[in-house]
Write a protein that binds this DNA or RNA. Structure first.
Length: 576
RNA sequence: CGGGGCGUAGCGCAGCCUGGUUAGCGCGCGUGGUUUGGGACCACGAGGUCCCCAGUUCAAAUCUGGGCGCCCCGACCA
């Protein structure tokens, strides 16, 4: 490709709306352009990167017996009503009506359509197992798009769905997918770690996220440096720091203490001169319409995912002040004591000791509150956020926290959809059985952004060979007709040999070209100039390295081919 | 949805507080010329609904009200 006719120019300065490195560089290098919040066009360079990532994904999916399909984005509401997600999913699912006033949705994921597909085709155990995947558009009306391509409202996703006769077969297939995912990210040049995760609205019995660690990430994960336990913080378990109940007289009844304007645990700790762990923090949630009081030690925080699981709630959110007033409780002085019609869930770290809790009246707290004795405990379970410093449940080493971006997610769905949508088969004995499913997603745009996020320097992007839009940046630094013609011929030779080159034939100064070469970040920069010719050929420099070499013109093509095959060697497909 | 910020030429910004010429600067863009190994120089030039609507005023980019858009921080997800 000649730069002089490449659509999409490079920008010297980053547009003001871009903050993260990947967002700025994708815009500056001319890979993407914004259309609306969370909606982007891919320019030719960006499209080439996407295509290369997709090639890798397709290769890995095909290697584990995946069969590529395309399913529609436009879905009839009936399918989503059948699965129940028409009701369970919020406004991130775009719903509308067609001209005949039929309800439709824009698919944000494809469990419904693929399950429908499967139940129509599959009747016998002989047809199982199989895995279908597609690489296609997803639409999600995200509450807040973010970080350029990190969180989009419309994006390309690889979504795969496997179908199995029983859980043993699903369990046997799952690790193959897991390894394929590791391959994909490695071949894209990324360090990604798998962590245990919350299945969320997709549902199912277990899942893993593939996380790329970065400060700009929106996920927090908990890792054990010793035994390598790794989990998303919203499901991570750990041993909470031990804390004895308070020193108060265990037999004494709760007593009112005047605590004017003392609301937060920090304030209370100062006021009472007690450690945070001697307080009970009460947080009110609205769970599927009803109120739940989460009671937890003052040194811990409530984990909403765990609370949702514990209370089996589909929709769980902090209760608003209005709701609290209606329930007759006082924000800032919440207490499980004397609370009516509210389900009280207590974190399992709360022991039999006595605690300081709210009094449920303004400016008062209760001392010497004992769970069970002074308030009814509907459930006791782990509902706490696991924090850095808590001990690993497996090996007792202190846990650490890290930030990351979720690039892929694999789920063992089990029968969640096949049961709701009645996807069955006849087994060898003629018994009707539910099909089991797994599902597996990768956000392709996000993956591209993450590569830039992890692989860049002060000057620009540093593309891993496998996903670089082109391999060579051919830089012509002379404007005399003879040099131009020579470089044109050289470019034609590279093309004829199948080398991917971006030929900077523009009428621009060396500085401009070198800076654009660094910004776009192709693996090798090849300079053709009078100076290089005088030195014996063209000058080659790898992106991100200082050293350069002169390669004679007649050896250049085979030399470049060798560079390329060497660089690709450790990122090619390797059968397991 | 709550909190914060921004909206003036393709990009980055100034001007707004304290209303008053043809709305300005850098980069980029076009033409001609001189240049050519790390974002050159000279000359000429094109390019603006100052986000939108309403109001105040003799007069609005500037003041007031409403709306829209975009970014960032929190609850959700690939």
């Amino acid at each position: 490709m000649r730069m002089s006719s490449l659509f999409g120019r490079t920008l010297r300065e980053a547009p003001a709306e871009a903050e993260t490195a990947s967002h700025q560089l994708l815009l500056r290098a001319g890979l993407v352009r914004q259309v609306a919040a969370g909606v982007y066009s891919h320019l030719p360079l960006g499209q080439r990167v996407m295509r290369k990532i997709i090639d890798i994904i397709r290769e890995e999916m095909d290697a584990i017996d995946g069969q590529q399909v395309i399913m529609p984005i436009l879905n009839p509401a009936e399918l989503w009503q059948e699965s129940g997600r028409w009701y369970a999913v919020g406004p991130e699912l775009i719903r509308f009506q067609d001209r005949a006033e039929r309800d439709l949705v824009l698919a944000m994921t494809h469990e419904e359509v693929v399950t429908d597909l499967a139940r129509r085709e599959v009747h016998s155990y002989r047809q199982l197992p199989f895995m279908l995947y597609q690489i296609h558009t997803k639409i999600r009306d995200e509450p807040r798009p973010r970080g350029g391509l990190v969180r989009l409202r419309e994006f390309i996703m690889k979504d795969g769905y496997s179908f199995h006769p029983d859980s043993a077969d699903l369990d046997a297939y799952y690790p193959r997918m897991y390894r394929a995912y590791e391959n994909i990210f490695r071949r894209c040049g990324l360090d990604v770690i798998p962590v245990e995760a919350d299945p969320g609205m997709i549902g199912g019995t277990g899942s893993h996220e593939f996380i790329m660690l970065t400060e700009t990430g929106e996920d927090t994960i908990i890792v054990c440096p010793n035994c390598h336990y790794a989990a998303n913080r919203n499901i991570a378990v750990g041993k909470k720091p031990a804390a004895a109940g308070s020193q108060d007289d265990g037999a004494a009844a709760p007593s009112l203490v005047h605590t004017p304007n003392v609301k937060t645990i920090d304030d209370l700790a100062r006021f009472f001169q007690l450690p945070h762990s001697h307080f009970l923090k009460t947080v009110m949630y609205e769970a599927d319409g009803g109120l739940v009081a989460a009671v937890i030690r003052g040194d811990l925080d409530v984990n909403e995912a765990k609370l949702a699981k514990t209370t089996k709630a589909t929709n769980l959110a902090l209760a608003g002040d209005e709701k609290l007033r209606q329930a007759g409780v006082v924000p800032g002085f919440l207490s499980p004591v004397g609370m009516n019609g509210v389900r009280v869930v207590v974190d399992d770290s709360v022991s039999d000791g006595s605690y300081v809790a709210g009094a449920n009246q303004p400016d008062y707290h209760l001392r010497n509150v004992r769970p069970s004795r002074d308030f009814a405990v509907a459930q006791s379970a782990d509902i706490a956020v696991t924090q850095a410093g808590h001990l690993c449940a497996r090996c007792d080493d202190p846990l650490k926290e890290a930030k990351g971006i979720e690039l892929g997610h694999t789920f063992k769905l089990g029968t969640k959809y096949t049961e709701a949508m009645k996807a069955t088969y006849l087994d060898a004995r003629g018994q009707q059985k539910l099909i089991l499913m797994g599902c597996y997603g990768i956000g392709v745009d996000r993956l591209m952004a993450s590569i830039v996020e992890q692989r860049h320097d002060q000057r620009g992007i540093v593309w891993p060979v496998r996903v670089a839009p082109y391999h060579f940046y051919l830089c012509l630094l002379a404007d005399d007709a003879e040099s131009k013609a020579g470089c044109d011929r050289f470019y034609d030779q590279m093309k004829a040999a199948g080398l991917e080159a971006l030929y900077d034939d523009r009428d621009a100064t060396a500085g401009v070209k070198f800076n654009d070469a660094d910004l776009i970040g192709l693996p090798w920069r090849v300079t053709y100039s009078r100076r290089s010719l005088a030195a014996g050929g063209v000058e080659v420099k790898a992106r991100g390295e200082k050293a350069s070499a002169i390669v004679p013109l007649d050896e250049a093509v085979p030399t470049f081919q060798r560079y390329l095959s060497d660089a690709l060697a450790n990122t090619t497909f390797q059968p397991a």
